[in-house]
Every structure is written in structure tokens, then in C-alpha cells.
Simulated assay, not measured.
Amino acid sequence: MTTHLSDCQLVSPTLALHEAFEAFVDDFVLYDGPNSAEYLPCMANFSEYIRMLKREGHHSNRSNSAILCHHFWLYHAKTEHIYGAIRIRHPLGNQFLRTEGGHIGYHISPSYRQQGLGKLMLKLALPKAKELGIDKVLITAKEDNMASRAIIEACGGRLEEIVYGPILGYRIARYWINLSGEHNQ
């Protein structure tokens, strides 16, 4: 089933979307086991998972050097389906984020890849990053993940370099997207 892209929006995680998120996780378990590990633990206590995601995006209970992480889901209200999850992290307060992780990380549900949803989700997230005060966004992808790299490039990403990521253990393409309205360097 092809999704009408114009009907998708980024929404904040909420308890009301428990069933839709469970279907999102099930799709990862079936078709992308390695990435399902990120989402499986939340299913044991979904309400605590939602509270945790919300806490990660608030300054309260954080030091000035803490990294904030804002979570969004690509949601289609008509089908009541979550097609993707995206995180915006700032500032890049540790070596992992500065080198390997970047400001934005995302996943598209495996059954719905290659339909333009990754590009849509990243395009919807960039204005949110700007609202958070990020003028230049670092986004990374595994060097051989050409689909993710194409999404980043389609959204204005300019390749800075390819480096070895010692924590992730593979080569990483590092891209920058300038949100200040000036040309990317």
C-alpha cells in the first residue's frame, strides 16, 4: 500500500498511539531485527517509555551541558499508522554525537521503505531543528547505506567526510545541512 505522503505529519509520542507504535515495532521485529532492539524494550512498559521520551526533550532535571533529545513519529491519521521515528539531539555534547551520531537519527518502518517517507520525515524535522536553535544540522549514515545517504542529500545534505566510527564500528558518511538560509559550505 502506498501512503499519501501529504497526509503524514510529525507528531510527538503519546499514549494514544500505543497500538500504532506496537505495529511499528512488530514490523521491525519481522523485517529488520537488528534495529528492533532499539524499540523492543519500550513494549514492556509503554507509558514509562512515553514519559522517558518526553523527559529527554525538557530542560528540567538537566544540567546545562546535558543533551536534549526531541522525539517525533511520522504518523498518518487516516490509516492510524506510524511509518517512522526521528530524533533531534542537541547540543552535540559528546564525542559520539560529534563524530558518529549527529543531530538527527531516524528509522522508517521496513515494510514502507523506498516510498519517499524517509525524505518526507527528514524534511518535516528540519524546521523543528531550526525552532530548537540548530542552524547547521549534522546527519550521519553508514557509508554503504545508499538509501539513507540519498535521503540526506535530497534534503540538502552536503558530504563533509567519511570517517571510521569507533563506537559503531563502521565507516560513517557525515553530512551537514545549513538551516540558516545561507548556502551550504
Rank of each mutant, 00 (worst) to 15 (best):
L132H: 00
G169F: 06
I152A: 10
S180Q: 09
R174I: 05
I139T: 07
I177A: 03
P166I: 14
W176E: 04
I177D: 07
Y175T: 12
K128F: 00
W176C: 01
L138M: 02
R171H: 15
A141M: 09
G169R: 10
A147Y: 04
D135N: 15
W176Q: 04
K136I: 07
I152P: 06
E131Y: 03
E153C: 04
V163Y: 00
G169V: 11
I172P: 02
P127D: 15
R174N: 05
M146C: 06
G156K: 01
A173E: 01
L179H: 07
A154N: 09
A173P: 00
M146N: 03
L179C: 14
R149E: 14
Y164S: 00
M146P: 02
L126N: 10
C155G: 08
T140G: 10
A141R: 04
P166W: 13
Y164G: 05
A129T: 05
K130F: 08
I139H: 05
I151F: 11
A147V: 13
A173I: 00
Y175V: 07
L159D: 00
K128D: 09
A150N: 13
L126S: 13
V137K: 08
R149Y: 07
L138C: 07
R149K: 15
L179V: 10
L138E: 05
P127E: 15
P127L: 13
L159F: 06
G169A: 10
R158I: 13
G157V: 09
R149F: 12
R158M: 00
G165T: 01
E153R: 08
R158V: 12
E160P: 01
G157K: 06
Y164D: 01
V163T: 15
A129Y: 03
I134F: 05
L132A: 13
I172E: 04
A154V: 01
E143V: 07
I134A: 00
I177K: 08
Y164M: 01
G169C: 13
N178Y: 05
T140Y: 14
N145E: 01
K130L: 14
G156F: 00
A129Q: 00
I167R: 04
R149N: 05
A125N: 02
S148N: 06
Y175I: 12
I152Q: 03
I151M: 15
A147C: 09
K130E: 06
